[in-house]
Design a protein around this nucleic acid. Structure first.
Lengths: 91, 91, 91, 91
DNA sequence: GTGGTCTAGACCACG
DNA sequence: GTGGTCTAGACCACA
């Protein structure tokens, strides 16, 4: 945890749903430390353009990350990387 | 009417719009007698801070209450609790 | 009615509120036939840019026009010029 | 013109009107180069506190400076030091 | 990808 | 020193 590896480009090909792939990609950027706690994420519309996906796809990915506790969003202000909780230890 | 019950803290969670929730909360404070006719309400900017919302949100709530006839606002002086009309009696 | 005169540029100078001036300008474009019934108006954000005003100012102007019955807006689809009611005939 | 002298503290004592004294003080800060073209002036309410004067006094001083062409104010954004025109050369 | 609400903070009008 | 309008730009609900 908290390694400084690089996250590969976002290039979804697998059977995974697009919004899930996007959520995973951002989650990876957080895990790797590229996105640090309390940083503000780019606005949702900007993310949509950067990733070349529809706005709604970004919204779904954000919802996913919110539910995983990785981000916190404040209406009208932006969405921020959460203080990362101790990883659940995984499988 | 004019009971002296307490109004619970402002803690919007429901699906209600924030400004509407705020308007309702203040309306409740009036209904319960915490805010009496002719009293001056705190300045809008102060309300915004107290309630932890943006100024515009307070403005919208005030507009709502004005339309309901619960308050009267005078430009440059402040906003005041209106002489309460006979409640519509409800169901 | 339904003349094809031209509406002058939007250039608010008077004491009128900006959003009211904007509403009037669009109302004039409708009156003159430049904007025909059932046409879709440009998106609100685009109007904001075109007119060089803030988004909220456009929103307020739209609200005004909606209340005057000149436009109809559908959430998620756009705002459309209404079937014009018989003008009140004026003086 | 465009000297780099220092402007003395604001300490009105003379018969001059307070808002005029304030305007002159700010004009001096511009003349001396302490306030450069295109810089944003502190918000009016902040200036009122800093100078220890009423808000209205600041507003009047701003009006004065606007009419002298020393500042440009944009509603909702702030007030900015104007590109200084060639001094009128006055005696 | 639209309309709708919210945040933050500026200048304006009025008493 | 209050209420009122405006700027700028964020997230939200809907089709």
């Amino acid at each position: 945890m908290s390694n400084e590896d690089k996250v590969p480009e976002f290039d979804p090909k697998g059977p995974e749903l697009l919004y899930a792939a996007l959520a995973d990609h951002i989650a990876a950027r957080i895990a790797v430390g590229e996105l640090q706690p309390n940083m503000r994420l780019a606005p949702e519309r900007e993310l949509a353009e950067e990733y070349g996906v529809a706005y709604l796809t970004v919204r779904r990915a954000m919802k996913e990350l919110r539910e995983r506790g990785l981000i916190v969003t404040v209406h009208g202000k932006g969405t921020f990387i959460a203080e990362q909780p101790p990883g659940d230890g995984g499988p």
